[in-house]
Design a protein around this nucleic acid. Structure first.
Length: 173
DNA sequence: AACACGATTTCG
DNA sequence: GAAATCGTGTTT
């Protein structure tokens, strides 16, 4: 590992950070569960005020507040009353964007992965740059691996053009 | 105070 | 194809 991703990595546009997170290492250091390292293999970009699939597009509320903050923080969202979605806030303050971590290598599905690694609402607002229990690190290569793109999952309600934007990034084998 | 709904997963 | 299950935003 070359080292932990710094603040500037997260302060770029979500369409740049989402594919940029592929191949990066998600490092967990939760008390009791011990240390664990996972490779991020699938992400989705949710781009601020214009993107109707992005929760922040309907304005700043208590829940979406963290997305309006500085990049590098975590936005946790509970879906269907049972699954936590792990998001990484990107860009800078006042610009609401986030990357949904959809899969880790060997672990498919955003809801299953958060259960596996033990991430829930208590991680909302956590700073990935300074947190002692969760962080993202550069992989050995330090480059973005090959990947394919496609429409995001489960957001058809947002309508066109959002439901068709190729903002889902899947790392190739 | 009540209601509708969702960035999913699992089972039949 | 449908249920499980609840925090959040919206409506009453």
């Amino acid at each position: 590992m070359q080292g932990r991703l710094d603040r500037t990595f997260f302060r770029h546009d979500v369409l740049e950070v989402a594919p940029g997170l592929l191949g990066k290492l998600l490092v967990m250091n939760d008390e009791g569960r011990g240390k664990a390292v996972y490779t991020i293999s699938e992400t989705e970009a949710y781009k601020g005020g214009v993107d109707l699939a992005c929760h922040a597009s309907k304005g700043r509320t208590g829940r979406t507040d963290v997305m309006f903050g500085d990049g590098g923080h975590i936005y946790m969202y509970l879906i269907y009353g049972m699954y936590w979605m792990l998001n990484v806030v990107t860009s800078s303050e006042k610009v609401p964007q986030a990357v949904l971590i959809r899969a880790l290598r060997e672990v498919s599905g955003p809801g299953r992965l958060t259960r596996l690694i033990g991430v829930d609402k208590s991680y909302n607002g956590e700073d990935l740059v300074t947190s002692l229990r969760i962080g993202i690190y550069e992989s050995g290569e330090g480059i973005i691996p090959a990947y394919t793109t496609g429409p995001r999952i489960g957001i058809d309600y947002a309508g066109e053009p959002w439901k068709s934007m190729p903002w889902r990034y899947v790392m190739s084998l």
